[in-house]
Design a protein around this nucleic acid. Structure first.
Lengths: 235, 235
DNA sequence: ATCCAGGTATAACAGGGTTATGAAATACTG
DNA sequence: CAGTATTTCATAACCCTGTTATACCTGGAT
C-alpha cells in the first residue's frame, strides 16, 4: 500500500511552514517556492502531497479552525454559564489576535492568489473538513448558550438562534478589531467587547447585575489563566 | 495645464470595469489584462492613471465604502430611532449581499494578489480616503444611536461605544452570512439578524415590546421601499 | 509651423503557479 | 536475493500576470 514513505512528515512540515510564513510575512509570503525553500524540498512536494497551492491553503484553513476549536474547548464549563460565554469570547478574540494573518485566511477573508472561500464552493476534502471544524467551534457557543437557558439566565428560545446572535457579535467585533478599527492594543475589549456581551446577555434575559458579575468572574478567570500561563512558561 | 485630455474618463471606466469583473468572476478575474481588454485600452492605462493594480484596488475599496455610505444615508431619520437602526441594518445587509465580491474586497478581507488591508498600512491616497468613507458609514449608526439615547429608548451611555456594539453585531452577521453560514437566501434575516437587533435594543435599555414594534415598523418600511423600487423599475 | 507634455500601444522582463520528465528510493513479488 | 512496481522528489521548462522601458501619437502653446 505504501511503496515509499521515505519522509512522510513532509506534508505536515509544509503546513507548519505555511502558517509560519503566513504569520511572519502575510499572505503574499505564502508562495510555493518560498514554502519549498523553507522546508528544504522542491516545489514538487506541494503537488505530490496536496495537488496544488489551493489545497494546501485549505489545509491551513482547517488548521486554523482546529486551533480555534481546541482553544474554546479548553475553556471548559463552570457553574456560571454566562461567565463561560464571556470566557469563550475572550478566548476567541485572543486566539485570533495572536495570529491575525492565519485567521484572516481561516475565515475565508483573504485567500492567497485572490480566491474566494464561500464555504459553499469548497471542493477539496480538506476544505469540507475545515467547514466541519468551524461548526465544531460554533458548537462550544451553542452549548454554553444552552446551559444559560437551562439555568434561567437567558429566556427560553432556540439555542442555535441565540448562539448565532452571540457568534455574530463576537465575530464582528474580532473582525473589525483585526481590521484596525477600535484602535490598537487591547482597549477594544474593555470598551466594546465586554459591554457588548453584557448588552447581549441582558437582551437575552439576564439582569444587568448578574451579567456584570459574570463578566467580572470571567475577567478574573482570564487573569488567573494568563498569569499561570506566563509562570508556566509556555505561550 | 492639460496637454491632452483626450479620453479622461478612462480612469473612471477602469474602476467601473474592475467592479464589474469583480462581481461577475470574483477577485481572480480582477487582472490588469482583462481590465484593459474590457475597457478597450492597453494595460499601460492602469499605470498612467493609478500607478499599479494595488492603487486601483484601493479605488475599488473606496467606491465600496461610498456605496455603503450612500445607501445608509438614504435611510433617513424617522421619529422612531430604533426603527431607524433596524432599517440601517437591513440596508447594510442588503447592500453587501447584492455585491458580495465587491464588499469582500471593500472590507479588506479579500485582496487580489493576496495583499492584506489592515487600514493601518494604507499607503495610497485613495486608501486613506477609503478609510474616511468607512468612518462616514459608521457615523450613520452613531447618529441613530444618539437619537435613540435622546429619545429615552436606550440607556444613557457613550454613543460611540453603543454604536460600536451595534456595528460589531451587524458586521459580524453580514460577514458570516456572506461566508455561507446561516444558509442560503434571506432566511438569516428573520431568524438571526432581526432577533439580534431586538436583543441588542433590549440590552441597551429598550423594552421587548417597543423594540419588537420598531422592528416591525422597519420591516413594513422595507417592504414599501422594495415594492416602490420594483415598480419604479430601477434596481 | 514648431515644440512640448502627457496618454497610449508594443514588447520585453520578472516572478509567481504548474507540469513534464527522469532519477532515486522503498515495498512487494518471485 | 534479484526484479519490479510504485511513490517521492529535483530539474527544467511552460504559462500567466504584474510591471516597466521605449517609441509613438495627439493636442495645445509658442
Amino acid at each position: 500500500m505504501s511503496p515509499k514513505p521515505r519522509a512522510t512528515d513532509v506534508k505536515d512540515r509544509l503546513v507548519e511552514a505555511a502558517i509560519r510564513l503566513l504569520d511572519d510575512g502575510g499572505p503574499e509570503s505564502l508562495q510555493a517556492r518560498k514554502l519549498a525553500a523553507e522546508v528544504g524540498v522542491s516545489t514538487m512536494a506541494v503537488y505530490t502531497h496536496f495537488g496544488g497551492m489551493a489545497a494546501l491553503v485549505d489545509e491551513v484553513v482547517r488548521t486554523g479552525f482546529r486551533k480555534l476549536s481546541a482553544a474554546l474547548a479548553e475553556v471548559g464549563e463552570s457553574d456560571d454559564p454566562v461567565a463561560d460565554v464571556f470566557s469563550l469570547a475572550r478566548t476567541y478574540r485572543h486566539t485570533v489576535a495572536e495570529q491575525p494573518q492565519l485567521f484572516a485566511v481561516t475565515f475565508g477573508q483573504i485567500a492567497p492568489g485572490g480566491k474566494r472561500a464561500t464555504l459553499s464552493d469548497l471542493t477539496t476534502e480538506a476544505g469540507r473538513e475545515a467547514a466541519n471544524e468551524g461548526l465544531e467551534a460554533f458548537d462550544h457557543i451553542v452549548r454554553a448558550t444552552e446551559r444559560a437557558i437551562e439555568a434561567g439566565r437567558f429566556r427560553p428560545t432556540d439555542k442555535y438562534q441565540a448562539a448565532a446572535q452571540l457568534w455574530s457579535a463576537l465575530h464582528g467585533f474580532v473582525t473589525l478589531e483585526a481590521s484596525g478599527h477600535f484602535g490598537p492594543g487591547e482597549q477594544g475589549i474593555d470598551h466594546i467587547l465586554i459591554p457588548l456581551g453584557i448588552t447581549l446577555s441582558v437582551g437575552l434575559g439576564d439582569t444587568v447585575e448578574r451579567a456584570g458579575r459574570s463578566a467580572e468572574a470571567a475577567r478574573a478567570a482570564w487573569r488567573a489563566k494568563t498569569r499561570n500561563a506566563r509562570q508556566g512558561g509556555n505561550d
